[in-house]
Amino acid sequence: MAKIKFTLNNKQVEIEKSPTARLLDILREDFDFTGVKEGCGEGECGACAVLINDQIVNSCIVPLGTVEGKNIVTIEGFSKTKRHEVLRNAFEEEGAVQCGFCTPGMLIASESLLNKNPHPTDEEIKIGLSGNLCRCTGYNMIIKAVKSASKKGDGLW
């Protein structure tokens, strides 16, 4: 057990847990951020994606001990931003949401991508989202949505 401090959705938090605990479990069970989903538990599907210092990670394989002092944003925190609003509108307009289980992770991946590259090409979008599996949409509308958000949200990223 260790005391681990970090920033979670803009709040300073501290928790006493094993440093090998999965960040995903801490977020879902201890902080009740259930927008972070478990799809595979092996870092493959991206449903559990969160941002650590603005970069996407799969929280199901992040050991809690590595987030000491870092800034974590889940979909719940991200959804309060202007950038989420732009992405949200684009996802809605393009029809990029079906069952929704991959969607929080997709939005986190989009944010992480746009943070690095505010105006990605289709190919760059595909690479940026390649760690997020979706079984409903065939990705086509998601790719279009990210493209459209990058245009409409010009200057936000």
Partner: peptide, 13 residues
Amino acid sequence: RKVDSIIKMSGVA
């Protein structure tokens, strides 16, 4: 616009 996409995109569904 789909009626259930907002709750899915904000993680509250």
